[in-house]
């Protein structure tokens, strides 16, 4: 199971890198979204996908899944959510002000202000 997950995560990273190297700003932001998906899945996978019930003490089970990576992922998700929201708004403002979505045209010389 871990091997399958690793391959899928690898594909996510590959598409994230591909998108982040493109010229359109929106594609770059989609790439960062995929990148954080990959990172979160990786956190889940690397901590082990052994069988066990959900981490609720009410289940009274023999074995539980590891609760720590789940807490870490939850934290990382809200952080990347906040950053992505901010990034999208900055991209929107930049589109309004600079009038372009092309990252190549956002090159500035030293003197203009």
């Amino acid at each position: 199971m871990e091997i399958l997950m690793s391959i899928v995560i690898g594909l996510l990273f590959a598409s994230a890198v591909y998108l982040m190297l493109s010229k359109s700003l929106l594609r770059i932001i989609i790439g960062t979204g995929l990148l954080s998906h990959g990172a979160h899945l990786m956190l889940l996978t690397l901590a082990g996908l052994k069988r066990g019930t959900v981490p609720l003490l009410g289940e009274n089970a023999q074995a539980y899944t590891d609760p720590i990576p789940q807490a870490l992922i939850l934290t990382a998700i809200v952080i990347s959510f906040g950053v992505t929201a901010f990034f999208l708004v900055v991209a929107y403002r930049a589109y309004q002000e600079l009038g372009t979505d092309n990252i190549d045209e956002m090159r500035g010389t030293e003197t203009d202000d």
Partner: peptide
């Protein structure tokens, strides 16, 4: 200039955070 540069700064740091 701030908008332009902060997009780059954001992208680099989002990547390094991942």
């Amino acid at each position: 200039i701030q908008l332009r540069e902060s997009i780059k700064y954001l992208l680099v740091n989002v990547t390094s955070s991942a």
